[in-house]
């Protein structure tokens, strides 16, 4: 009995892996980000996000795995705007993972905070626990006006009513890259082979994605930038996204 409890505890501890296989990490340079929202549409297209309609938006039931938050500073005429793309931070010590009663959200060997739709029973606890508010609940089974459904990405499930969903770091693209690497003499995935939809679209190249366990990867180098910081770091969630703060000329 006690070993069972211990085992349970160890699984309950977020990030129970001694070492990740890959550690997928993203950096976002706020000094390059212009708030254009190309990433938001890219995500919607790639991940089959529903078109929820005006009424649902009014009830704050929209689903956007990545969104641009905007913060004003100062008053007219010395007023400044700061944009920040907000998506699942893939925390290594994720509060959401400790909350789920059915283990529908867990950490995998690649450092990803993942969500299993089939297992989710819709308690929405994880969304309450998430300090970044990047988990979205399907209050309805959304449909697409014919023939918009022809666009749906066959590599990504279409979610149904009653499940929680969030950014996966485009895990389907990671899967394809791993698959190609395996075909190529079982090698490791190379830097730059996995590009999530948001990172791919970014017109200012503000986002960089890669394996932070590889010290030579572009993302590892970006993480060392002195402008780097993690959002709400004081909560000790250990996010996998490093932001680079705005600079001054």
């Amino acid at each position: 009995m006690s070993t069972f409890v211990e085992k349970l505890r160890s699984y309950r501890k977020p990030g129970y892996y001694d070492e990740f296989d890959y550690h997928w990490t993203m950096t976002i340079d706020l000094d390059r980000c212009t708030g254009c929202e190309a990433c938001v549409v890219a995500c919607q297209a790639e991940n089959n996000l529903p078109i929820v309609g005006e009424e649902r938006f009014a009830q704050s039931r929209e689903i956007k795995w990545i969104r641009i938050e905007r913060y004003w500073e100062g008053e007219y005429p010395n007023v400044k705007m700061g944009f920040i793309p907000m998506l699942c931070q893939q925390c290594d010590d994720a509060p959401c993972e400790t909350a789920c009663p059915v283990y529908a959200t867990y950490h995998n060997q690649d450092g990803l905070n993942t969500q299993i739709y089939n297992r989710c029973i819709g308690t929405r606890t994880c969304a309450v626990y998430c300090p970044y508010e990047v988990r979205y609940f399907n209050w309805f089974t959304y449909t697409w006006d014919e023939p918009l459904e022809q666009q749906l990405n066959p590599d990504v499930s279409v979610r149904e009513k009653g499940v929680m969903e969030k950014c996966t770091f485009c895990i389907q693209r990671i899967r394809i890259a791993k698959d190609n690497a395996k075909d190529d003499d079982e090698r490791r995935v190379r830097d730059g082979e996995v590009v999530p939809a948001c990172v791919q679209s970014c017109p200012t190249e503000a986002m960089v994605f890669g394996n932070s366990k590889d010290p030579g990867s572009k993302v590892s180098k970006m993480m060392k930038n002195p402008r780097g910081y993690k959002v709400l770091e004081e909560l000790n969630t250990s996010p996998s996204i490093v932001y680079l703060t705005k600079a001054h000329s």
Binding site: Y106, L112, T114, I116, Y117, S157, Q172, R175
Partner: peptide, 8 residues
């Protein structure tokens, strides 16, 4: 046995 090896 990772869920996301097979689930999508």
């Amino acid at each position: 046995r990772d869920c996301w090896t097979c689930h999508k």
